[in-house]
Simulated assay, not measured.
Amino acid sequence: MARENMTKDRRAEIVEVTTGLFLDSGFAGTSMSAVARACGITKATLYHHFPGKDDLFAACVTHGYAEALDRVQEIAASDRGPEDKLREAMEVLYDVTICSPVGRMSPLIAEVAQAFPNVARSFHDGYVAPQQALIARIVEDGVARGTFREIDHKLLSHVLMGPIVTLSLSREMFVDFKDLDDHFPIEPLKQGHVEMLLQALRPPG
């Protein structure tokens, strides 16, 4: 067990260091040799943990979002009201997608996934699908309580995540703007998005 925990800790350490390298140098500009040097390990040790750079990138993505999924899981399982649950879940999604290091990798995820389908599959199966299921669970609870109306789950997912991903990509695209927060302010856009979503979900009348 101790050896297994040590292996998990080492993998997590490699992933955290490599996430920073990917953000600084991009996918193409980050070599496995550079990762090994930054982590203070040999390339052989690195390849023992990750067979290829695409596998390492996929691990960076899924590792970063795992904690967010756990938090949304706790929110969905709580006894709070549906609107409060959705508000709290949205806080988590905005935080991880826009403010966390792995969230800032959104442009890279889109780029790398085109060349390496396993990255796209890992990201979808490891984060997107579970996150959609948890949000659907929160909304279904609201429907059962009469707080929300019925809504197509795929439509809900796009209405919920679309503005978050767009804001994340915009902030990365124009990151060098000195007035970035004037053009793409997180808090007011987040609050407006949440309120519009709740308005759409509330029953008419």
Rank of each mutant, 00 (worst) to 15 (best):
M161K: 08
A36R: 07
S157D: 11
F22T: 03
G29W: 11
A66G: 09
G52H: 04
N5V: 11
L23T: 06
E83N: 02
R149A: 02
M32I: 12
A200G: 11
A136L: 07
S106L: 15
Q131R: 00
E16Q: 09
A77V: 05
T45E: 06
F184W: 15
F57Y: 15
L189M: 13
Y65M: 11
S168N: 05
D181E: 15
A66I: 14
R3D: 06
A76D: 01
L198E: 01
D9R: 10
P185F: 14
K8I: 12
A12D: 05
L21M: 08
I75V: 06
P82L: 00
E88T: 07
V61N: 01
I164F: 12
L156E: 10
A115I: 06
G20V: 03
A89T: 04
T62A: 09
D95C: 15
T30N: 11
K43A: 08
L189F: 08
T62V: 11
S25I: 04
L156H: 05
G64F: 06
R37Q: 09
A129F: 08
A133M: 09
D84A: 00
A2Y: 02
D54T: 02
R80D: 07
S170Y: 04
F184V: 11
V35P: 12
A12V: 13
P82K: 00
E150S: 14
H153G: 01
G205W: 00
T30A: 04
D182T: 15
V139E: 00
L201H: 01
P204I: 01
G29S: 04
D141F: 08
A59H: 13
M161Y: 03
A59W: 09
A59G: 10
K53N: 10
A36V: 13
T45Y: 10
V112C: 12
P82S: 00
L198W: 05
T19Y: 03
C99F: 06
P204C: 00
F116K: 12
I98D: 05
S122N: 06
G64R: 01
I14W: 02
T7Y: 05
D152L: 15
V92H: 05
L167G: 03
K190T: 12
V61E: 00
D55V: 05
P203R: 06
V159G: 04
V17L: 08
E195T: 04
A59K: 03
A144Y: 11
I109C: 14
H183V: 15
M6N: 14
M173P: 03
H49W: 13
A113Q: 13
E140I: 07
A34E: 14
E172M: 09
